[in-house]
Amino acid sequence: MASGVTSVLCCPCRCIFCGLLSCILSVVACVLIVAGLVFLTLYLLFRPHLVHATAASADLANFTLTPRTWILRYNLTVAVALRNPNTRIAIRYAAVQADAYYQGQPFGHAALPEFFQDTGERTEVMAQFVGQHPLEGGVAAAAFRKEAIDHARFSLDVKVRAKMSLKVWAFTVPGPRPRIDCPLLIQRRNLTTGAASTEFQPTDCRVWF
């Protein structure tokens, strides 16, 4: 008898709870469907594309390693060309930073100016790294010695990061944070004559968000 009374008392509560849960799930499903349709519509309307990045030019005026102390002295200049392939979306780049790496170790940092890129525009940003930095571990030093002997052509990486905002018509919205990785093979200038024996070939960079 007691269990029957308990069941009768709990039944209305269960009905109210089930109804409320069903209502909440219906609202969430409607919101997700509407958001998906809006996203699909905007995608089909604006057709967003990743920016294209190329290491257009590079100059390695100095890249030497002191014996025993493994202090890397460098003077590297790299021009990265960015192209906005979108026809309806303009891009503003802020907090643009570039870092140079050798054998996975960062050795130089450069802060670059902010800039605005209209649809279809190509912009070239220049990053210069000058200074000295210790290399850690004998593997990096051994790789340096090998590349120095092999025509002084060094495998470097220049990575660019930025905050991006997108301008669509009169509206500006926050965009993704692009990461650009440019693997480079650059010949150091001759330590005696100051000239490079081979010309740098433009290299495509990888872009992801």
Rank of each mutant, 00 (worst) to 15 (best):
L42R: 05
Y43S: 00
L44N: 15
L45I: 12
L45V: 13
R47E: 10
R47I: 00
R47C: 02
R47F: 03
R47W: 06
P48L: 03
H49C: 11
H49Y: 13
L50P: 04
V51A: 08
H52A: 08
H52W: 10
H52R: 14
T54F: 09
T54N: 12
A55S: 03
A55W: 04
A56W: 10
A56M: 10
S57D: 11
A58C: 09
L60R: 04
L60I: 08
N62C: 11
N62R: 15
F63G: 02
F63T: 02
T64R: 13
T64N: 14
T64S: 15
T64V: 14
L65F: 07
T66D: 12
T66Y: 08
P67H: 08
P67V: 04
R68N: 15
R68L: 13
T69L: 13
W70D: 12
W70I: 03
I71D: 09
L72W: 10
R73P: 00
R73S: 11
N75E: 15
N75V: 11
L76M: 03
L76V: 10
L76C: 01
T77Y: 05
V78T: 11
V78Y: 10
A79C: 11
V80L: 13
A81S: 15
R83Y: 08
R83A: 13
N84Q: 08
N84S: 10
P85Q: 10
N86R: 12
N86C: 13
N86W: 09
T87I: 08
A90C: 10
R92A: 05
R92G: 04
Y93V: 03
A94R: 15
A94C: 11
A95C: 11
D99Y: 15
D99I: 14
Y102N: 01
Y102D: 00
Q103I: 00
G104P: 01
G104S: 00
P106K: 05
P106I: 03
F107M: 02
F107Q: 02
G108S: 03
H109E: 04
H109G: 03
A110N: 14
A110E: 11
L112Q: 02
L112G: 01
L112T: 02
P113I: 06
P113M: 04
P113Y: 06
E114V: 07
F115K: 00
F116N: 09
D118A: 12
T119L: 03
G120T: 09
G120V: 07
E121N: 10
R122Q: 09
T123E: 06
T123G: 01
E124F: 01
E124M: 02
V125N: 00
V125L: 04
V125Y: 01
V125M: 01
M126A: 05
M126F: 13
M126E: 10
A127M: 07
Q128G: 00
Q128S: 12
F129H: 01
F129Y: 04
F129L: 00
V130G: 05
G131N: 07
Q132H: 12
H133P: 00
H133E: 05
H133F: 05
